[in-house]
Design a protein around this nucleic acid. Structure first.
Lengths: 218, 218
DNA sequence: AAATAGTTTGCACGGACTGCAAGTTCGAGT
DNA sequence: ACTCGAACTTGCAGTCCGTGCAAACTATTT
């Protein structure tokens, strides 16, 4: 614990970081070149100059390497959430959070965006991505519940986080779908979605409908 | 086309249906018995008395067989959506739809519920389930957009469907999490979620926050 | 320098899934 | 009833993923 702590740890830790990075980078590069489903773990390991077996010491599947998610990202969002000004309302906090996350995303050179592109092209990748996202969602819900002073079992914080996630996803899909055709821009779409969530998705919702076809359901 | 058309087609079609059914049933049974991740395709095929190769003529993965989804279910929902009374507002339509879908779900003997149980226990299963759900969501969004007379690129229908899906999911999670402890019942939770979506998730949402850290974005 | 703990690697294995090339079975026409 | 073609099943060979294990190697500590 007393070497240059610019990047803490001795040679061991440094090498580990390097290997992990090399693997993720190789995975990404090859996935772009050959299509995410035509890359083999062998190729990736080769490119990073380690054995196949070692690859699996670092990542549980091929997909994780390609996605190369940085655990810091979630940490950062959680911290931001916990430190948000007390006077902000929940949805406002989340709006700021999304805003910051998108900004972070823009900063990450091309990598993050290329990864994002790939996800749309491989179901396997998409599946892993969604799974990781679900974990994040749980963590964020818990943090928000605490922030709002509600019990962890409460519906509202979870629904808020879920709806916001959905909003961003839907906005991103619409954005991509329109394919460059003078689209409103992601930020604008996200704003629109947040406004809808805030005001209510449907002012004409008819509550009386419910009681019709439901009896005793514990 | 002139045999007993109770279940249209000749011996060929009938056998196909039977095989598919036998495979799905065997898959489900074994998944329950041994845990979804400890079942092999070989066992399933054996139980249904076909070759492994044949299994893959019917299902693209093991997971599909276990989930054994009925394409009719989506069809039914789409039809219902298209035939909904014109005076119903969008969210109301969706509420009715969910209500009916949950009722269908209850009717399906134990199968559907057991499948649902399993999903929570296997990431692989969950991943496939989510992927299938995403397709449904797209189809429903399109139908709803048309029903609302909005262009397919419009944000609101997609957001509505997405948010509702999320609402049901979140409600189901909360329900399960509480594990029998005097929980409010799924229907009640779903109602609560719909009410929140209808009224707005956050009346105190602060719109001014947005303009702060965003400049020209196409 | 030696003991220790963390890492890498090869090997062997089991399981998913695919393409191909026979076989079989079914359905239709004659 | 007989025959022919289409649809379905099957075995085989092969690729790739992912894991447990034990041996080799390397950094760290004392």
């Amino acid at each position: 614990m007393q070497t240059e702590d610019v990047v803490a740890g001795g040679r061991r830790e440094r090498k580990k970081r390097e290997t992990r990075l090399a693997l993720a980078a190789a995975a990404l590069r090859l996935a772009i070149e050959k299509g995410p489903d035509n890359v083999t773990v062998e190729e990736i390991s080769e490119a990073a100059d380690v054995s196949v077996r070692t690859f699996f010491n670092y990542f549980p599947h091929k997909e994780h390497a390609i996605l190369g998610r940085d655990p810091e990202d979630l940490e950062r969002s959680l911290t931001r959430l916990r430190e948000a000004p007390a006077e902000q309302s929940p949805l406002t906090m989340l709006r700021v959070l999304v805003s910051q996350a998108l900004a972070d995303f823009e900063d990450k050179a091309g990598d993050a965006k290329q990864r994002f592109e790939l996800i749309g092209r491989s179901p396997a990748l998409l599946a892993q991505f969604v799974l990781l996202g679900a974990e994040d969602e749980r963590a964020l819900s818990a943090a928000l519940a605490e922030r709002m002073g509600e019990p962890a079992t409460s519906l509202r914080p979870a629904l808020l986080v879920g709806a916001v996630t959905t909003a961003v996803r839907v906005a991103a899909e619409k954005q991509k779908l329109a394919g460059g055709h003078e689209v409103p821009g992601l930020t604008v779409l996200v704003d629109e979605a947040f406004a809808l969530l805030a005001d209510g998705l449907d002012p004409a919702y008819d509550r009386t409908i419910l009681t019709r076809d439901q009896e005793g359901q514990s």
